[in-house]
Nucleic acid binder design. Structure first.
Length: 273
DNA sequence: ATTGAGACCTGTCGGC
DNA sequence: TGCCGACAGGTCTCAA
């Protein structure tokens, strides 16, 4: 499920739960997710007090009093539940289903990590700037990410712009939905070679300016959006709207679905050029 | 150096 | 009802 906005929302939900709390108990209901839990995972977590939770791209970093950091990636289907102890089955129930990790805090709160597809990751890493060593590109909401940076990353790249936006080394945190949505917002065809929005004579093209801005707008709106009625309806302007009318004012196009790098892309062939 | 295809998993949904 | 394929918001690795 989660791209940058969803991960950021998880961060905001969990930080007040964890911050300043000590981890009293950790239970693993299996030995791996996408990859094995690191050696000593449980003992290195138990007894630690958690500080802030940082985010880089789609990764979360729980800062521990030991100096280590707990790294979490939600993959496709990872999620956390927060409950009071006792509201849930014992952490070592016979059938944990997809509840792979249970974390008890001294506050009496229990946090459960659930991940049916197990594309998620949990790991422990040495102290350091969150994200170091993960080869992530800039944070799209950081002012340092702008049209120039984006244009430079596009230079001489013949790959379609949509595919390039999914490259976490180019910009960290976009996934299939928000790459799709940003391109719709910027009125850019997902099929365009990335190089066609690169710099020209040292200046970013207007397309690069529109796209950098659209990325920021789409992500910001998604972080702040409040779920509610019509949430699903109004969520996307292109994603999963194949066959529907383009929602851009004045545009009479119909949203098409294509496959790029094995993933669905939705776009309006009329207003996205 | 890039790029595409396949692999990793389970769940859901639509069609027959 | 059941079976089957297509598809799902993400990486990672391998081969061309």
């Amino acid at each position: 499920m989660p791209e940058l906005p969803e991960v950021e929302r998880v961060r905001r939900e969990l930080e007040p739960v964890f911050r300043g709390q000590r981890i009293s108990r950790v239970v693993l209901n299996r030995e791996n997710l996408r990859r094995p839990f690191p050696v000593g995972f449980v003992t290195r977590l138990e007894g630690q007090t958690v500080g802030t939770i940082a985010r880089r791209g789609k990764y979360l970093f729980f800062l521990l009093s030991s100096g280590e950091m707990l790294l979490v990636h939600l993959g496709m289907s990872g999620s956390f539940r927060v409950a009071r102890r006792g509201e849930l089955p014992a952490p070592t129930s016979d059938d944990p289903g997809h509840d792979h990790v249970v974390i008890d805090l001294t506050s009496g709160v229990r946090v459960v990590f659930n991940d049916p597809r197990r594309f998620g990751v949990m790991d422990l890493m040495a102290a350091g700037p969150p994200g170091d060593g993960l080869a992530l590109g800039p944070e799209p909401l950081d002012p340092a990410f702008d049209a120039e940076v984006l244009a430079r990353a596009c230079a001489r790249r013949r790959t379609p712009i949509k595919v390039l936006l999914l490259d976490q080394g180019v910009v960290a945190g976009l996934g299939n939905i928000y790459a799709t949505e940003a391109l719709h917002r910027a009125r850019l065809s997902p099929r365009r070679a990335a190089s066609t929005i690169a710099t020209r004579s040292g200046r970013p093209r207007p397309a690069a300016r529109r796209l950098a801005l659209a990325i920021k707008e789409v992500l910001t709106a998604a972080i702040e959006r409040v779920p509610g009625r019509r949430y699903r309806e109004s969520r996307f302007r292109a994603y999963e709207r194949e066959g529907e009318r383009c929602r851009r004012r004045g545009c009479r196009g119909v949203i098409r679905r294509i496959v790029q790098a094995g993933r669905s892309t939705f776009y309006c062939p009329v207003c996205q050029r």
